[in-house]
Design a protein around this nucleic acid. Sequence first.
RNA 1: GCCGCGGUAGCUCAGUGGUAGAGCGCUUCUCUGAAAAAGAAGAAGUCGUGAGUUCAAUUCUCACCCGCGGCA
Length: 286
Amino acid sequence: MRENMLKKLVVVLGPTASGKTKMAVKLAKKFNGEIVSADSRQVYKGMDIGTAKPTKKERQGIRHHLIDIIKPNKEFNAAIFKKKAIGTIKNIQRRKRLPFLVGGTGLYIQTIVDNIEFPKVAPNKKLREKLEQKSVKELFRIYKKLDPKGIKEIEKDNKRRLIRAIEVSKISKKPFSEQKRKGKPLFNILEIGIKKSKEEIKKSVEKRIKKMFKMGLENEVKGLVKKYGRVPCLQTIGYQESSPEETSLHTLQFAKRQMTWFKRSKKIQWVKNYQQAKKLIRQFLL
RNA sequence: GCCGCGGUAGCUCAGUGGUAGAGCGCUUCUCUGAAAAAGAAGAAGUCGUGAGUUCAAUUCUCACCCGCGGCA
């Protein structure tokens, strides 16, 4: 199928606190759209304040998908996201509406935009725990045996990646490096990035964090820890710091990391405001 | 005014008679089932100021300046 025969999808991305929600809702209203969240933390129920989950008021009647879909003690990841997001997007298209994939989780967006085909090996808790005991050097040696070619492209100091690479190679009995694939395009996609200066981001982050603390972020954290314990998804900015200053710093660092990720994609069209985004979508829909 | 302690990277501080390190921050980067995660590389200091001892001083000595604490 040629790309222009594919159904259309608009992606709205940007660093944290860049105004994605606001812009996306406005665009969705304008273009008869619905929003599919691409946010690795807003999927969790109860993580509301710290993830800046859009409130009912902020959603302005626009349907939001993939928010509040699981409990914090449940596992979630990029592969699960991909499956759910594709289903949701197709469903929206079937209903003749325009899907907007909106979020700041670069990998999640990439699963759709680049159609990343993850090796079909689910995380294996037992194996991971076993490998976790070993040093990176040992892990590297083990991986080298399983996938001699793969060692060129893996970070030899990154335990988590080594463990995953070993897991895939071992369970599938095929080298991990040969299983990293991209499929054919799933949709006809317009990628819009919200461009903000460092100063603007800093300002809005600080404002947002202050607001979060005022809204009772600390109680939200306490409640979640009490209910679920120290589950992995609470390894999140806002849920482990002890002061607004620390949270702001970590959020700013996060925003920078997000931009590093986004910079890699040449397809993103950077936009300063709603008007520019609207124009791009108009052309895209012709 | 006196006594003591301190002045080394943006911050907190190690350290050494042969011109310096750490943690955090900062910059850049990686990313295929934890990604708000996990990891890598790099920049950065006339070691408070001036003088003395020494082949050599950030390190020892003296004076001065600044900060902190105590005594007057």
